[in-house]
Amino acid sequence: MNVFARFFTGLLVLFSVVVNAADDQAAAQLRKQLDAMNTLQGDFVQTTYDKAGVEQERSSGNFMLMRPGKFYWKTLEPMPQLLVSNNKTIWLYDPDLETVNIREFTDDLRETPALLLSADIAQLRKNFSVARTAKDAVTEQYTLTPKVTDGMFQQLTLVFKSGQLAEFAIQDSLGQLTRCVLGNVQRNVALPEENFFFVPPEGVEILND
């Protein structure tokens, strides 16, 4: 599975989190923000930078998220691509290549930034250091750093504006930064379950990881 798929698979496990208790103020504040989201949908602009801060690529599209671990992430520009999960199976559809990559949603995929939305606060604090910064009266930034440094990322940043998830960024072990800015976000609206299941079009090549 490509870097894009691993990255957002990580995010969505993150979106599955149900946090139970906290004795750390930053983790407790993050819990409140995450607990307020059962579904989320909107648009995104995702930009990747190299370790020198030079832009490498940019993509945009729309998304839908639902707890636990369900997501629909559709890239429209510059090349179409669709990533879908029902928390059991992940489909990555590339219409230009006419391929569908299918992967089981296994435990190893939870060893990613998305863990933040799938685990309780005790597990979160066991695996990450959490820092909170109030940027202004309506903006909060949470920086999560893994306590074990041999994983796929070095740091994850979540930015909330007026209680709404507005952007996130992930820095990988090579210093590459991927930043995703969300727009037209709607929270806790009803989303049909069928949005999180994908039927491969006839004639496409099916690849199984």
Rank of each mutant, 00 (worst) to 15 (best):
L115I: 02
N2E: 10
P201A: 09
L12F: 12
F105R: 10
L97Y: 08
A122N: 05
R67L: 11
Y93V: 12
F128M: 07
R58P: 15
L156H: 04
R31S: 14
F105C: 03
A131W: 04
K135C: 06
T75E: 14
T39E: 03
L191M: 11
T99D: 05
F198M: 15
L207P: 09
T157I: 15
V148P: 10
S60F: 13
D150V: 06
T106Y: 01
F160Y: 04
L12Y: 09
Q186M: 14
V54N: 07
T145L: 07
N86C: 13
L124A: 01
L191N: 04
L83W: 00
N38P: 12
L40W: 01
D96P: 10
Q171F: 01
T75W: 10
T75K: 13
D24I: 11
N188H: 08
V54P: 03
V13M: 06
L207E: 06
G42L: 13
D120A: 00
N127Q: 10
M37D: 00
A5H: 07
L117Q: 07
D209P: 09
L97I: 14
F168P: 05
Q29L: 12
V19F: 02
I170C: 05
A131R: 05
F71R: 09
E193S: 12
A131I: 14
F105P: 11
V17D: 00
T112V: 04
